[in-house]
Design a protein around this nucleic acid. Sequence first.
DNA 1: GCAATAGTTTACGTTAACGTAAAGGTAGGG
DNA 2: CCCTACCTTTACGTTAACGTAAACTATTGC
Lengths: 126, 126
Amino acid sequence: MAEYSISQLSKEFDITTRTIRHYEDLGLLAPARRGQTRVYSPADRTRLRLILRGKRLGLSLDDSREIIDMYEPGKTNVDQLKKLIDAIQAQRVKLNQQLDDISKLLKDLNQAEVDCIDALKSNGQG
Amino acid sequence: MAEYSISQLSKEFDITTRTIRHYEDLGLLAPARRGQTRVYSPADRTRLRLILRGKRLGLSLDDSREIIDMYEPGKTNVDQLKKLIDAIQAQRVKLNQQLDDISKLLKDLNQAEVDCIDALKSNGQG
DNA sequence: GCAATAGTTTACGTTAACGTAAAGGTAGGG
DNA sequence: CCCTACCTTTACGTTAACGTAAACTATTGC
């Protein structure tokens, strides 16, 4: 099956059709049309997956669009390519910061859990 | 120095004083007062740091408040402790999902960069 | 004594990311 | 022929997270 309806995608990714149309309004998706009806290709589906991944990482939809556009090799201008590489570097910096944040948070969670369990022991049995 | 003014913290974390007061409005901070003026302790400063870390990870301020409250050992109720442990597990799941997202995104960025560089070579010198 | 600087509260404004409702087109089933 | 299910557009509403402005207080420096 090489195409998807809007409701299929909404079920698969557990979002509303309104959300999908909203992404289109913002220029993140541009599905084909059969008459008036939207028809999504596997590539469209991939874009949607990338958008949602970006969301989970706290990116704005505008940020996501920029990143997704990076993946497309349609940029022939040298200056644009250099600009893209800079943007990629910037994203990398941000992601590494997030990695650091997450490892610290996980560490904190571990400690919090240990504290909880200790409290349970002395409280539930003491 | 065991205390900070609101403007000191705003400079240190590169946010506005309005933001800090907003966090207080939502119950994420509760600094002492000297007269009317807010006086922040090192513990307040740590809470602020945690809030901002949560923001970078895409958490809502409400989420951050819940997580931060986990770190405080003032919960004597056994049921609450168990509930906390569950919440910690849930957070861990979410963070691991983020880790996965980030590693995929970094991989994508690497590929995008390679593509850019290739394009530069064939375009700038071809 | 007065201006500059840093603090305060109150309150309306703004942006992002959708939710929700209205009003309607279309294809298939009984 | 009408109901159900799915699709469409248009447009106003909502929530989170602050921005911004107004009006006031308190301290410091000259």
